[in-house]
Design a binder for these strands. Structure first.
Length: 759
DNA sequence: GACCTGCTGATTTTT
DNA sequence: TCAGCAGGTC
């Protein structure tokens, strides 16, 4: 169907403005709006710009924003794309576009039609931890011990199968090893359990989308008409189920545009199939192909290094990435004695750059494994280098946050057994393992959710009266508030509910730093919920919980501030920085040792190195250490074989001489265990960036403007109104004792507690 | 049922 | 190195 001109946006000058500044290939990609289009976009070739402009152009040409489906790799990328479209076209248009990750968009669509596939719209989304603990309980029910198979092994096999659209029946029929046979058995139970719990894991969001499309002709018809234009970013990293769902969506109109680069495929281990991009032209025989090969990001030197590396891979499509940029600085290769020296070296270079007028935010430090971040953190903190870590333990994976979210989930989806278990004994209610086992048995016998079994505790003969009492207290609390929320959907009641769970009070009363931090985190989550209710049309708790279930590490970080970014090479995909350090280039670490025996895995590692190199705009530093502490032991190692792929002419003269491996100097410290500074989070600017949307952590504003004094009336987000009893501590670390109405006295750190002074 | 202690395995990468 | 867990004790 050709595009019709939109009457009010067909302004000629706007249109030409939009296309101005694009090179001929980019222009071709932007304006080829009809039919299947494959864009092979080399690193730094302006891919994001092309996608954004293409959408804006389509809208200008008459496409309805609500008919556009744009799938990106992170929610952040989608958000940025929408922001740019808001400027290029209009905020209304941007808001109407369906843009997000596969998982978040599909979750949204599934919510609207959950009943068609046997769920309710309030289904829970299980993250990896939830799934694993479900698997553990299944293993227990099946009397399978850890000696036979680990829950992790089972989980990864199930996920592997799901990613490739292999159901349990097929998996069972092909299972040849004992572990596979167990996994097949668990897989079957797991599927059943998830449906019972009204829950989906990450893989199910994709699979169920396909099930939904297959569920009826009308459904398929509806969505094929609904999404007239489909755009997919990072197509090389899509898996089988993503691929199939796209085929369903686009089968009629075939207006599908995929963008990718086979050289940057780094998620094979997660089920991504490069063949999706390689076979696109087979799938759509009349597909138009555009190659974006001009790089606007990096210097010639960096590009040469990247090219030299990727050329070592056999299974790559030949590409000629080129740039008009300068030759630029040589690459620095540095050998250090050990991992601590490596961190010191990186800090030193960063400090030098800062003194020459660079910004911290122009620097990224990339590594293979999250565990490597610790030494950089220590060193940066000692040198007052502000930094942000992406990845590692996410805010939403913290115990107290998961517990709080479990209470929310349970309120909207009482079938959710995982949340029930989590919430049940946090804070401790005196219901122990034996009791839970008895209730679980009862639930299994009657095929009812765990929560329902707790509500019927009276009927369970073997339970002692005191357990029956605490069980009914627990279920009454949930039932009471789920009714209240149904009657009046307001965040006020959710806050009240969370307070009544006693979770915050439990931590508040524990006088440890750790507990105080947990209180702060919970209160931050609650502020976020409040903000969500204030800023969203038709907010619901269910929607909020689903949103935060799908937040990715990179989404939740505010990278706009002036600080160094620390992250894994995987997380760096799609980003760019003037200065990039790639650290830990050692045999066994990068490439990881387990990949060395498998050519395909090693090629994937090499692509990962390629991705890392091509993040750099101007200066690239490659470092490796002769010895490194791993698993609490000091290991000596050789430099990475990947370094041999880069011609030595590209390295600066100040680079370390590339020593033959045998000549490595021995590590200076034979044992550094005690010398590594303890992790100390006290002065890192971290609380403001662990967040959905805009964090706005408004701490310490009050005491800066007007000092609190005993007798003042204050309001706390969670505890409500109260009166300041006393203040103690140093200026930067004031502790207040506040008497809250109905709650009694609480000790609060002013620096973190959000106290609002009221008249 | 709560708490303590000593053992074990984890470090790939993430929606 | 250290978090998480099983197993023992009160």
């Amino acid at each position: 169907m050709p595009l019709k001109l939109h009457p009010d946006t067909s302004n000629k000058s706007e249109k030409s403005d939009l296309l101005k500044g694009l090179n001929s290939k980019q222009l071709e990609a932007v304006t080829s709006t009809e039919g299947p289009l494959l864009i092979i976009a080399g690193a730094g070739s302006g891919k994001t710009r092309v996608l954004t402009y293409r959408i804006a152009y389509m809208i200008q040409q008459g496409a309805l924003p609500g008919q556009i489906l744009a799938l990106t790799f992170t929610n952040k990328a989608a958000k940025e794309m929408k922001q740019r479209i808001a400027k290029l076209v209009s905020p209304e248009a941007a808001a109407a576009i369906y843009a997000g990750t596969f998982h978040s968009i599909y979750a949204r669509l599934l919510r609207q039609n959950a009943d068609k596939i046997g769920y309710t719209s309030d289904f829970s989304i299980y993250d990896t931890d939830d799934s694993q603990s479900t698997i553990k309980s299944i293993l227990k029910d099946l009397n399978i011990t850890k000696d036979q198979v680990t829950p992790q092994a089972v989980q990864s096999r199930i996920s592997y199968a799901k990613n490739r659209m292999i159901g349990w029946q097929e998996f069972a029929s092909k299972a040849s090893s004992p572990v596979d046979r167990i996994a097949a058995r668990v897989y079957q139970e797991f599927d059943k359990k998830l449906v019972q719990c009204n829950a989906m894991d990450f893989d199910d969001l994709l699979l169920n989308m396909i099930n939904l499309l297959k569920s009826s002709g009308e459904m398929l018809d509806y969505y094929q008409n609904r999404f007239q234009y489909i755009l997919v970013d990072e197509y090389q990293d899509t898996n089988r189920s993503q691929y199939l769902s796209l085929n369903y969506f686009s089968a009629q109109h075939k207006n599908i545009c995929v963008v990718g680069d086979d050289a940057q495929s780094i998620y094979r281990w997660r089920g991504a199939e490069i063949r999706n991009i390689l076979d696109f032209q087979k799938d759509y025989p009349n597909a138009h192909l555009v190659r974006l090969e001009q790089n606007y990001r990096s210097t010639k030197t960096i590009l040469s290094a990247a090219d030299a590396v990727i050329r070592m891979n056999k299974g790559q499509i030949p590409k000629k990435l080129w740039t008009e940029n300068d030759e630029g600085n040589k690459i620095t290769l540095k050998q250090l004695n050990d991992d601590r020296d490596e961190a010191e070296y990186v800090s030193k270079i960063i400090s030098q750059k800062i003194s020459l007028g660079q910004n911290y935010s122009n620097v990224a430090v990339l590594y293979r494994t999250n565990a490597q971040s610790l030494l950089f953190e220590n060193s940066f903190r000692a040198k007052n280098i502000p930094y942000i870590i992406i990845g590692g333990i996410s805010f939403y994976k913290r115990k107290e946050i998961k517990d709080t979210v479990s209470y929310m989930k349970l309120l909207i989806n009482p079938n959710d057994d995982e949340s029930c278990i989590r919430a049940l004994n946090e804070p401790p209610r005196g219901i122990g393992k034996t009791t839970i086992e008895k209730v679980r048995e009862f639930a299994n016998q009657h095929s009812i959710p765990l929560f329902q079994a707790f509500s019927r505790a009276d009927e369970i003969q073997e339970l002692q009266p005191r357990f029956k009492l605490s069980a009914s207290k627990f279920s009454n609390l949930i039932l009471k508030y789920s009714q209240i929320i149904k009657d009046e959907n307001s965040d006020i009641f959710i806050r009240q509910y969370l307070e009544e769970t006693g979770l915050v009070q439990f931590y508040s009363e524990m006088d440890t730093d750790d507990a105080q931090e947990r209180v702060r985190n919970i209160s931050q989550l609650i502020s976020d919920l409040t903000r969500y209710y204030a800023n969203t049309d038709n907010p619901t708790l269910s929607d909020y919980v689903q949103q935060i279930s799908l937040i990715t590490d990179i989404d939740e970080k505010d990278t706009s501030q002036n600080r160094v970014t620390l992250m894994t090479l995987h997380s760096a995909k799609g980003l760019e920085f003037p200065n990039v350090f790639i650290c830990g280039l050692e045999a066994g670490l990068f490439p990881l040792s387990r990949t060395e025996t498998n050519i395909e895995e090693e090629e994937e590692e090499r692509r990962l190195f390629y991705v890392g190199i091509t993040r750099a705009e101007k200066d690239l530093y490659l470092t490796y250490a002769a010895s490194r502490m791993r698993f609490g032991e000091i290991n000596r190692q050789m430099k990475s074989k990947f370094l041999n792929n880069i011609p030595s002419t590209l390295f600066s003269s100040s680079s370390s001489t590339i020593l033959p491996q045998q000549q490595f100097s021995p590590p200076i410290n034979s044992f550094t265990g005690n010398m590594v500074p303890k992790r100390d989070n006290s002065n890192i600017p971290q609380f403001d960036d662990l967040h959905v949307g805009k964090p706005n952590f408004e701490y310490s504003q009050i005491q800066d403007e007007e000092e609190l004094k005993p007798g003042d009336k204050v309001r706390h987000n969670l505890f409500g109104e109260g009166k300041v009893i006393s203040l103690a501590g140093s200026r930067t670390n004031i502790q207040a004792i506040v008497n809250f109405q109905g709650l009694g006295k609480k000790k609060l750190m002013l620096q973190y507690a959000k106290l609002e002074k009221i008249k």
